[in-house]
Design a protein around this nucleic acid. Structure first.
Lengths: 216, 216
DNA sequence: TTGACAATCAAACAAACGTTTGATAGATAT
DNA sequence: ATATCTATCAAACGTTTGTTTGATTGTCAA
């Protein structure tokens, strides 16, 4: 299915690239696949973006900006931790649903040979966790905050949220579920419950369940 | 750094392919990269595996077998849910640490044009969740099991466990952590706490935190 | 000793790759 | 009117791709 014809050439290339990079992977997707889908000449990619790799970086750059801006926005404000975190998780899933292709590209197509991309992402993730520490957990007493390892729980949360979209084809096949609005409402609630209880457990007691066994 | 010379040609190719597929991605990694690293001729790949794609499928097949066999094994037995689940999480992380390259390949290189691979994975995931339902939660009363949505919590757990290894370079850069034995011990404990509390919350009360708000 | 078989290699293959070039049309400014 | 600039295209460029071929070596059986 070709692209809508009223958009500009540059936007048509971007749309096609996002879909095809996600579908076949960046390296496996030839520029001729993209321009055929976009209905433009192959020279247009280098004209508008400079190179195929720069096109990929532009896609990642745009989606990163959306994602981290959303996170920044939801951590501000005076509401309780529960309220902020539930809203954050719900809107994050909403954003991922709207751009599942961009999400998969951002996660799976780590351009290992472009160190500045890794630096960029690491910088944003670090700032995000710092923001969570300052804005989300600032009211907790120090000895509780010491027990909450955000550098573990943060990536775990992101992993929970994103993994479903990464392996979506396997997931739908395995459970015979079609993922509609209702499903994702339940999905967001379930993950929020899981995460909030996990955090709050640290605020009340030391031991996780009955005994926290360390058997071998 | 080339491969160890005492192994067979077939094994040398497999070892090199796992590392390089993970590093550069399947499509971006040329067969000449692999055979140069393995110290063999390029014809050996097609001789021993048939094609480049068959080599990828062999890698995924081997690692899938290890992973799901581990899961099957840990869900059996008469111990309590907490004990089984903690041991499962710990050994899963141990396996992922030993084969981070295979894990990344299995998750990120979904051969979309090979439907049987997706079918294979979907089948295994479905059976795994069914096994968890039968062996892990069989002692719970029915009205509690209805509230535990394993088709959501299961993939969420796998996402938590694997995501760290997928984005490992970003992760290490962001937090300035070197991930040693101690780190992963804490990592496993933290995730087990998080997950067990999230589940046990469903067994006690209906509402997640204070109010389970549904604001907009 | 001869024949068959398995493992290996260097070289060659056509196809596909990302990029560049030169030309063309349309708009805008001088 | 003419020159400049922008957006576009078809065609060609040199590489690199995965695969195949034909020859060579070593091993084991007849």
């Amino acid at each position: 299915m070709p692209n809508s014809p009223e958009k500009s050439t540059k936007e048509r290339i971007l749309d096609s690239a996002v879909r095809l990079f996600s579908q076949k992977g960046y390296a496996a997707c030839g520029m001729r696949d993209i321009v055929r889908d976009a209905g433009v000449s192959i020279a247009m990619v280098n004209y508008h973006f400079g190179s195929k790799k720069a096109l990929l970086q532009e896609i990642i750059r745009r989606f990163s900006a959306d994602t981290f801006q959303l996170a920044d926005h939801h951590f501000e404000g005076a509401e309780a931790l529960e309220i902020k975190l539930r809203r954050f998780i719900r809107d994050m899933i909403k954003l991922f649903r709207k751009n599942p292709d961009s999400l998969r590209i951002m996660v799976t197509e780590l351009p290992m040979d472009v160190p500045e991309v890794i630096d960029f992402k690491a910088d944003r993730v670090g700032k995000l966790v710092q923001l969570a520490r300052d804005k989300l957990f600032s009211s907790f007493p120090d000895e509780v905050r010491e027990r909450i390892h955000l550098e573990i729980l943060g990536p775990a949360l992101i992993g929970m949220l994103t993994f479903h979209f990464i392996v979506h084809p396997v997931f739908e096949r395995a459970f015979g579920i079609r993922c509609d609005d209702d499903f994702y409402d339940g999905y967001a609630d379930e993950l929020a419950d899981l995460f909030l209880y996990g955090i709050l457990s640290k605020t009340n007691s030391h031991h996780a369940t009955q005994e926290n066994p360390k058997d071998d």
